[in-house]
Amino acid sequence: MSGDHLMGSGDVWLPLLVAAAVTYAARGLGVALGGRLDPNGAVFRWVGCVAYALLAGLVARMIVFPVGPLAATGLPVRAGATAAALLVFWITGRSVLWGAVAGVAGLSLLARLIPPVL
């Protein structure tokens, strides 16, 4: 394994620094502003909605139009694994752990059974 593979390419560090700064800014401002903010106020409810929508959009995009390694699997594989995960999740009384196990196992099996659609 090459060192470059371990550390990743050089262009990751600036985005990492920016991500770290904006993330800590949220936490640090929480301490600094503390009691002067209403955590249940309209601004934070809006922020919560935006964060939720963004994450939901990312999750759906990763399942429907994956750009990275998951692009090697067909949509039926990803849809089937998602269904398996959610099914097991409900059957086990909303166990995130068992749902995750079913999702990983489902995708691994289906990816082996159904050849990639290119």
Partner: peptide
């Protein structure tokens, strides 16, 4: 994900900031 599709630094910074500002009310 955004880094892997070659998104700009601004796009990455804004997306991460929007995702993580939800941490602020948690801290409060």
């Amino acid at each position: 994900e955004l880094w892997s599709i070659g998104a700009s630094l601004v796009a990455i910074g804004l997306a991460v900031a929007l995702t993580n500002t939800r941490l602020l009310p948690m801290v409060v």
